[in-house]
Every structure is written in structure tokens, then in C-alpha cells.
Design a protein around this nucleic acid. Structure first.
Length: 780
DNA sequence: ACGCTCGACTCAGAAAGGTCGAA
DNA sequence: ATTCGACCTTTCTGAGTCGAGCG
């Protein structure tokens, strides 16, 4: 098979441009109307990069390692030993397996099981009928293909250099043959076109996987700026200086004032001091980090002062360095890697009053990294000389490419593919399918917990009451938390102090949820719920749990008896999506202005964001901006009024021309030789001057169109103002990315002739590529 | 406990909006 | 006199980051 990878094409050049460049006869089509097509194309073109076909031997190879991987621990005696337990494969489909252990080099010793599957573990080849967009896609691909070939023959045998198994075919025959092949493969990359919805939790995530590992932050370069101790300059050793610099980076934030932050930092800082330094530095309160802070500021400013050409050059250089890390090859298909950068060292911040804030997050070294990669794939070269990877594993039951243990929280950090990848896309789709399935069960479930509210069993009453809130208020389930985590709660972990009961049936919530975001809401509840809550809090202290007999596990276990695979978080997805669908269906648009449609959508989105309590901090200049808009509105209204009066007057007097007075702001008086600062001063001077009245004659016949213009302006300002006010502390993005089934939006856009890219950004379009073919009749 | 999704915050770059000179 | 487009400033957006929560 001929490799058809398109080489040397920058990612961000739209394909249509490439086409028009390579094929002069063809007219480029507009970018706007083809965003989706382009994305689909891009999904397709990477597919061609492969010449490894999983089914080339007629069977699919499946490794079936069971068990967990342990992350590299450099402190362990033999950190390079992997702990891959092997266990008999427990795949759902009871595949026939063939064991085959394989000895690797000493360095990467591991055990593996190879499976010969009996064929039907492959996803069904059945695909949905290609829609018009894909017919178009095919045509475009063919054109690209030809363009690329022209390109290749001009440049020589690029592909041969790439190690492709076959030379480039140039004859018409071969070209046609390729085309045929391509037709068969056409659907390959479109995982969402396949009937694989049933494979809910196929434990095998990939067959082949190769990538370039991770990108480390640049090593620390000492700046040799001192700190001041009791006013005296002290130059620190590089190790201590680095940590001091972490603190200096935060000097302008509120963190440095918090006792917890200072305490944690001081403890960790001392550990990075030499004995000599320890003797000198006795108290954090006596240390002044300003010299380092100023150095950092100067660096920042220097960066800002670069010309845009310089900035661009730096950016491009950076991109070139990073390039190899941005992609992985999974089962022969090129996929984008999401977070290939190792987190840089610094101070742990945390959200809210986090007990660990201020601790030093240590620098991650190659020895800390576990690389997960296909058995046959080359192990990425360790980018730091003199170091080696902690572990190399081949675990195809997970989707991560690399990982390390976080020194602060003890949790694991992973490198994953991007949101547009098959791994992420499939599970995203499954999430929404599960939520959609809940729709069929929801009536029964509501009946169940309504009945359970009055059960004889206290546990069941608590469970039903909690579920009532999870369903009605879209609360998170609320797992137990450790002492060394911020004190935040969800439904099951609510404490007596978090609610206030108001007779006859109102409940006032006030607690800190995820990310220490405050949830304040007062709701009226059904009688039995109120009665139950009274009972649950009776005789308890404020810090006692309301649902003391309930565990998250217990709740989820119960949910699983009501619907397979159901857990508490599904309610959030379900309620968010169903709310959007309901709100969007409430209004039919005929030929309204696009802005009105978008505002309507945003309103619906906003309702969901409020339901989910997705907040954002008030933008600092919000009030100032509102004031500015208000005066803009006042002036627009004034002008409108003047025009209307003028029209009235002209009609009454039967004049074909009339005098209108407009109050305008005086314009700044710039001269060519003025500096930036002088211009600034002039602008400021003029802004404080009173408005000037400007009298002019206007033709009566022009007035109506001028009035219309003015009205539109007023409307627009009003709309801007109300949206800005309404959305000042509501974040729409979170629900759009995580909770709203994109098919609802796609269907609405199709039905109302709204271009989808007005609602989904480029990354969102990529993330939701799987949903783009939804029909306008899609029903959540 | 691991592996995943969810989440707010940040900052660069894009878009919007304003200014100015010329047509 | 208005309009156009180049240029500059301000505001907005979205992609990335890294921390939090769920199962």
C-alpha cells in the first residue's frame, strides 16, 4: 500500500488553500462555509499516514495484560522493574486467547500476553450512509491526492525516503487503483460512523501506539539576583535561588499574604537551602524577594517590547522544537497529543483554602516518567542527557502515553491525546449516549426515589433525599475528602451547617463546591423532602454530615440496579442536555437576524450554566465597561430622539431639508511628531472636554434611513448591555464543553440555518466532529 | 488507587472598534 | 462630505494549564 501522507504542510493552512495553490484551475471556496468540511478532511488526511494495518495478517492482535502499572519511583531499589501482573484475560466477549510470553531486554523486562482474537471483536464494518458532506469530502480528497502527487513528482521521491514500502505510483492505472483502495478505507478514521455503540467498555484501547514521549520545561538558568535579608543582599545557591524565584513569581498575588501559604513555603524552602544559607535565613518574614521580582518583571517587559516579527520568529522556532511531541500514531492513525508538556516546577497553589498551598512542586525528571508505548514502537529518546526514563510499559488497556506521580498531592498526572482524538471522542459520545438512555429510565427512577422518601429505612430515606437533590439541582455526588484537601462538599458530603430550613418547605443551600466555588440557592421542596431533612439534622452538630447513613458507593450501587451503568454524575449531564434541548425547542425562528438567534442560544446555554453553577469571577473592569456602554447608549438615544424630532418638524413644515443638532465629542488633535505618551495625554485631555454641538442640514428624504440606523444602534447597545450584565459571572464554556450533547446544537443550527461555527470554536468543532452529521430532527 | 472527566483561571492573539488621512 | 482602508488600541475569546472530583 502506498503511503499517502501529505508531507510538509503546516497544520494551520486550510486545505482549500492548498488545493488552490497546487491546482491553479480550481477556485478556492470560501473558508467560512467550509469549516466543518475542512475539519473532516483533516481527520481524513492523517489517516493516510499509515502503512501498518491491524488486519494485515487477517487477525487482530490483542494484548491482554490485566492489572495495574506502578509508576516509576526512583527511590525504589530497582525502579525499572515493571509490575505488570498478568492474569487470564477477562474480556467481555470471551475471546479465545493464545498466550505467548515474550522476553524483552533486561532494561524493559515485562510479561505480556498475546491474544488471537476470533475475529468478531472488531467493530462492525457497517457504516452509515455517507451524507452529502462526505461525498464532497471524497472529491476534495481526490483533488488533494492529485495535487500532492504533482508535488511529489516535482520534489522527487519524498515518500521513498520516508520508508514507505512502495514507490510512488505515477501512472494513471496505479492512481486509479489507489483510488479504489481508498474508497474501501474511506470510513476508516470515522469511528463515529460505525456501529460500535455497544462496546461500552472495551478494555483494549489500542493495538499499536507510538509517540515521542514528553517535553520537559527548560532547565533552570540562575539569574544571580539577590534576596534581601533584613535589608542585606544575599546571593543564593542556584538550588535555593530557583525556589526563591518561585515565590517571587507570586509576589503580586494574594497568596503570599496567606499564613498557610507562607508556612508551607517556608518549610519547603528551608529544605532547599544549604547549611550555610540555613544559618543566615531564620525567618520568611525577614526576606524580601523584590530584587528577583523586579528581575522577572523586567524579563516580562523585554518580551513584550519585541516587535511582532520577532515574536513571530520566536513562536515559529518554538513550534518547530515542539512539533514531534504533538502527534502520536495510534493503530496506524495520526492523532494529536493533548498535554505533552511536563508540568514545570513551581509553588502549588490549589483552589480556595487548600492546606497544601505554597508547597514546592518539584521538577519532574525523566526518571519520574513512565512511558506507555506499543511493544513494537521505538522507545522515544530521553531528551535530557545523562538521564533515562523511569519505566517503559506497554499497557494497551489505558489511553495515556506517559505519566508521573505528582509530588504534592500524590496523585498521577497523565499525558493524553487531545479532545479531538478517537479515545476522547468515543468516550464523550458514550457519555452522552448514557445520559440519553437515562431519559428512558428517568420516570421510573423519579418514582423510585419519591417513594423512597417515605421509606421505613433511614438509609433509603437519606439516599432518596440525596438523589432528589442530585436530580433536581444537578449537584455533584460529593465524595469523602482527605484532611490535606480543601474543605469542599457535594451532595452526599453536605453538612448540617450547609443548609438552613425555612418553614414550610424551603431549603437554603450555602456551601463550597468543587474548586471552592460557592453554591447559594434557596429552593422549595416537596413536603417529604423537607420533613426528612428536619429529621436528618435533628440533634446533630453543624459539622455533622446530613446524610450520615449514605455513602457515594451505596448511592451509585443503587443507581446501577435501576439502570445499567448509571451513576450519579449522569444526572448532571442528562439534566444539562435535556434543559438545553427543551429551551431551544421553545422558539421557532423564521427569518430573524442571526444575532437574535445567537442571543437566544446563549440564553439557553446560560440557563444550563446556572443550573450547573458554573461561575466565573467578575471581570475586573466590568463596572467601567458598563458605564462606558451606558453613556454610549445615552448618546445613541439622544441622537435618535433628535432625528425623530427633525422628521416630525420637517413633515409639519413640509420642508425637504431640516436642521439637526448632534452633540459630538471633540476629537483629539494629533500631530505627526507626537510620541505615544503625548498622544495618550491628548486623548485624555479631550475626553474631559464637554461635547460640542454640531449643527447641520439634513435632507428629509434621508431621515427615515438615518432613524433606522440609529434605532439599530440603540438596540445593539441595549442587547450588549443586558448580555454583559447577565453573563458577568456565568461561565458558558464549561457546560458547552462538558455537559451539552453537541448533537442538540448541531440539530438546532441546521433547523434554524445558523452556521455551526458561530457557536462552536475551532477546537470544539474538532472535538465534536462525531456529532456533525446529526440530522436536524435529532432528539436528545 | 488509578485513570479518567470536569473546572476555573490565564494570557496571547484575534476580533472589534476607533482614528486618521486620502479619495 | 462621506466613505474607505490602513493603522492603532481595546476588548473578547479560546486554547492551554493545572488543580479537583468521580467511579
Amino acid at each position: 500500500m502506498v503511503s499517502k501522507k501529505i508531507e510538509n504542510i503546516p497544520e494551520d493552512v486550510p486545505l482549500n488553500q492548498l488545493i488552490s495553490q497546487s491546482n491553479g484551475n480550481r477556485k478556492a471556496f470560501s473558508r467560512e462555509e467550509n469549516v466543518v468540511t475542512n475539519l473532516l478532511e483533516r481527520a481524513g488526511r492523517t489517516r493516510k499516514s499509515e502503512d501498518v494495518v491491524p488486519t494485515k495478517t487477517g487477525k487482530k492482535r490483542n494484548a491482554t495484560q490485566e492489572g495495574k502499572t506502578r509508576f516509576a519511583d526512583p527511590r525504589a531499589e530497582d525502579s525499572r522493574e515493571t509490575t505488570f501482573d498478568t492474569e487470564s484475560g477477562k474480556t467481555k466477549k470471551n475471546k479465545r486467547m493464545k498466550k505467548e510470553s515474550k522476553q524483552k531486554t533486561d532494561e524493559e523486562s515485562f510479561l505480556s500476553l498475546e491474544t488471537k482474537a476470533n475475529g468478531n471483536d472488531c467493530v462492525s464494518e457497517e457504516v452509515s450512509r455517507p451524507s452529502a458532506i462526505f461525498d464532497k469530502l471524497k472529491k476534495e480528497e481526490f483533488i488533494i491526492e492529485r495535487a500532492q502527487q504533482n508535488n511529489d513528482s516535482a520534489k522527487g521521491t519524498k515518500r521513498a525516503e520516508k520508508g514507505s514500502p512502495k514507490e510512488v505510483g505515477t501512472s494513471e492505472d496505479e492512481r486509479e487503483a489507489e483510488e479504489e483502495e481508498e474508497e474501501e478505507e474511506e470510513e476508516d478514521y470515522r469511528w463515529w460512523g460505525r456501529d460500535n455503540q455497544e462496546d461500552e467498555d472495551d478494555t483494549i484501547k489500542w493495538t499499536t501506539l507510538s509517540h515521542s514521549g514528553v517535553l520537559f520545561p527548560p532547565e533552570y538558568v540562575p539569574h544571580n539576583k539577590p534576596i534581601l535579608y533584613r535589608g542585606k543582599e544575599i546571593y543564593l545557591s542556584p538550588k535555593a535561588e530557583e525556589v526563591a524565584t518561585f515565590f517571587a513569581q507570586k509576589l503580586a498575588t494574594e497568596y503570599v499574604k496567606k499564613p498557610q501559604f507562607r508556612k508551607n513555603f517556608w518549610e519547603d524552602f528551608q529544605q532547599h537551602l544549604s547549611n550555610d544559607e540555613k544559618k543566615k535565613l531564620k525567618s520568611l518574614d525577614e526576606i524580601n524577594f523584590t530584587p528577583i521580582y523586579e528581575h522577572l518583571e523586567a524579563q516580562k517587559n523585554a518580551k513584550k517590547a519585541l516587535t511582532s516579527a520577532e515574536k513571530k520568529a520566536i513562536r515559529e522556532e518554538e513550534q518547530e522544537k515542539v512539533k514531534k511531541y504533538t502527534v502520536a500514531i495510534v493503530d496506524g492513525k495520526e492523532e494529536k497529543v493533548g498535554n505533552f508538556r511536563v508540568e514545570p516546577p513551581g509553588l502549588f497553589l490549589g483552589r480556595g483554602e487548600h492546606p497544601l498551598m505554597g508547597k514546592v512542586k518539584k521538577r519532574i525528571m525523566p526518571e519520574d516518567i513512565t512511558i506507555n508505548i506499543g511493544e513494537d514502537a521505538p522507545v522515544p529518546e530521553c531528551p535530557i542527557a545523562g538521564h533515562r526514563w523511569g519505566q517503559i510499559i506497554h499497557n494497551n488497556k489505558v489511553t495515556w502515553l506517559a505519566g508521573w506521580k505528582d509530588s504534592i498531592t500524590g496523585g498521577y498526572k497523565y499525558v493524553w491525546l487531545s479532545a479531538g482524538s478517537r479515545f476522547k471522542g468515543q468516550s464523550d459520545q458514550q457519555k452522552y449516549e448514557k445520559a440519553r438512555k437515562l431519559k428512558n429510565y428517568i420516570d421510573e427512577i423519579r418514582k423510585d426515589y419519591t417513594k423512597g422518601l417515605q421509606s421505613d429505612s433511614l438509609e433509603e430515606r437519606q439516599r432518596s433525599t440525596a438523589l432528589y437533590f442530585i436530580d433536581r439541582l444537578a449537584l455533584r455526588v460529593g465524595n469523602e475528602k482527605d484532611e490535606d484537601e480543601a474543605d469542599t462538599v457535594g451532595c452526599c458530603s453536605l453538612r448540617v451547617e450547609h443548609i438552613t430550613l425555612h418553614d414550610p418547605n424551603a431549603v437554603e443551600f450555602d456551601f463550597l463546591g468543587k474548586d471552592s466555588i460557592r453554591y447559594i440557592n434557596t429552593v422549595t421542596v416537596d413536603g417529604p423532602v423537607f420533613y426528612n431533612l428536619k429529621e436528618f439534622v435533628r440533634g446533630k452538630k453543624p459539622e455533622d454530615e446530613i446524610f450520615d447513613k449514605l455513602t457515594v458507593q451505596g448511592l451509585n450501587d443503587h443507581l446501577k440496579t435501576l439502570m445499567p451503568g448509571l451513576s450519579a454524575k449522569v444526572f448532571r449531564t442528562y439534566n444539562a442536555s435535556i434543559t438545553l434541548a427543551r429551551l431551544l425547542s421553545e422558539r421557532k425562528f423564521e427569518s430573524e437576524d442571526l444575532n437574535n438567534k445567537l442571543t437566544f442560544y446563549n440564553q439557553a446555554n446560560k440557563e444550563v450554566a446556572i443550573l450547573c453553577n458554573h461561575q466565573r469571577t467578575l471581570p475586573v473592569s466590568h463596572e467601567q465597561q458598563m458605564n462606558r456602554l451606558q453613556s454610549k447608549l445615552d448618546e445613541a438615544l439622544e441622537w435618535l430622539h433628535e432625528l425623530e424630532q427633525a422628521l416630525k418638524k420637517a413633515k409639519r413644515d413640509k420642508k425637504d431639508s431640516v436642521e439637526v443638532v448632534q452633540y459630538v465629542r471633540p476629537k483629539p488633535n494629533f500631530r505627526n511628531d507626537m510620541t505615544q505618551i503625548e498622544r495618550e495625554a491628548e486623548r485624555k485631555r479631550v475626553a474631559e472636554l464637554p461635547r460640542e454641538s454640531k449643527v447641520r442640514q439634513m435632507k428629509t428624504s434621508n431621515l427615515p434611513s438615518q432613524i433606522e440606523k440609529a434605532e439599530q444602534r440603540v438596540e445593539k447597545i441595549r442587547l450588549d448591555m443586558s448580555m454583559k450584565e447577565e453573563l458577568k459571572n456565568v461561565a458558558l464554556g464549561t457546560s458547552k464543553i462538558n455537559y451539552l450533547d453537541p448533537r442538540i446544537t448541531v440539530a438546532w443550527c441546521k433547523k434554524n440555518q445558523v452556521p455551526i461555527e458561530k457557536i462552536f470554536s475551532k477546537t470544539l468543532l474538532t472535538k465534536f466532529l462525531w456529532s456533525m452529521e446529526s440530522s436536524e430532527d435529532f432528539c436528545f
